[in-house]
């Protein structure tokens, strides 16, 4: 009986403190650690949601005449529709699928454009040190009590691996995952070791190695990002959502000039694999892989999907076409 009274006292005190907690500490914490949650919370009466990593952002270059994001450029094509964008650098399908779960509960939108960033399927991104804070943020994408969410963060109830552990996994993937070429190009590590452009001190050699590390992988159904897109696809089917997958442009010209045809063929092959897989599942795929030329990539010293205003416009126009097709198909289904 004594223990019971103590337990009840503990619970009551905790409940009282939990009631005070959200206003004073939680909101600030969420803003710092899971801003995408707040972005979702702000969305009201929206038709189309655009989910992406940093590729949506303007580069900020002085020569740009149009400082808008890709999502805003797409919205130009659909004045009758309300668009919203949720972006976070380094974000990927594993995070987007959790955000979509929130829309499942709140049902604010029924059409989603999700970027498919080819690099995000590779080991460098999968085992990035940025993954730990991203995984931590996923704990907030739900309607649990604030103090419970915060406690789960405190107890590291997410994929909480150290940078060293993630880098060890990445290294092992580069060394062990087979590539469809003859040695020494049968794995990323050996491929990078091949002399090209002199030794590692040459910037061209460093960039060539980065291209191999970013795009040197073979996609299959076991890839974690593919599993995330599969989950998204299943979710869309269950909820009756319209999904448009936006395969972003990569700098194939630089990949070709620095590394060669083997790498670009691998990039095309992986992209085609994605197109086939998700078209078969009934989604609209917009393949921008080779749509932006080298001149319109803003980062020249690392492979990224950051484009100037012309590059963003090209992507936006293609996605708008795809979205129009998807919406037309949806309308015709509804009419039938």
């Amino acid at each position: 009986m004594k223990v019971l009274i103590k337990g009840i006292w503990l619970l009551l005190t905790l409940l009282l403190l939990a009631g005070i907690y959200p206003k004073h500490a939680y909101e600030q914490f969420v803003a710092e650690h899971a801003d995408q949650y707040l972005q979702v919370q702000k969305i009201k009466d929206c038709d189309v949601i655009y989910l992406s990593a940093s590729s949506n952002f303007a580069s900020g270059l002085a020569r740009e005449t149009d400082p808008r994001k890709i999502s805003q450029m797409i919205a130009d094509h659909f004045p009758a529709l309300q668009f919203e964008a949720i972006n976070k650098p380094a974000s990927h399908a594993g995070i987007h699928v959790n955000l979509l779960e929130m829309f499942r509960e709140n049902a604010e939108a029924e059409t989603f454009i999700v970027t498919m960033n080819l690099r995000s399927f590779g080991p460098d991104w999968i085992y990035s040190e940025l993954e730990t804070p991203l995984q931590q943020s996923t704990l907030f994408y739900n309607n649990r009590l604030p103090l419970i969410n915060r406690a789960l963060v405190s107890l590291r109830a997410y994929d909480d691996q150290s940078t060293e552990e993630r880098h060890a996994q990445r290294k092992s993937a580069w060394a062990d995952d087979p590539l469809p070429f003859d040695p020494p190009q049968d794995n990323v590590t050996d491929w990078c070791a091949v002399e090209k452009w002199g030794d590692w001190r040459n910037p061209k050699r460093q960039l060539a190695d980065q291209f191999i590390k970013q795009y040197g992988f073979v996609l299959d159904a076991s890839n974690p990002r593919v599993k995330d897109f599969d989950r998204m696809s299943a979710m869309a089917e269950e909820e009756g959502w319209t999904m448009v997958f936006n395969i972003l442009a990569e700098n194939l010209e630089t990949a070709d000039s620095l590394v060669g045809k083997d790498l670009t063929s691998l990039m095309r092959r992986n992209t085609q694999w994605l197109v086939d897989r998700y078209e078969e599942k009934g989604h609209e795929l917009v393949n921008n892989l080779e749509q932006v030329s080298h001149a319109h990539f803003t980062d020249k010293d690392f492979p990224t999907e950051h484009y100037d205003d012309i590059g963003r416009r090209i992507i936006a126009d293609n996605v708008a076409e795809g979205l129009a097709r998807a919406l037309a198909q949806k309308n015709s289904k509804n009419d039938n």
Partner: peptide, 14 residues
């Protein structure tokens, strides 16, 4: 027991 609750609260919330 109030101290226990407070400690638990700090651990979970802060």
């Amino acid at each position: 027991w109030s101290v226990y609750a407070l400690l638990l609260f700090f651990i979970t919330g802060f």
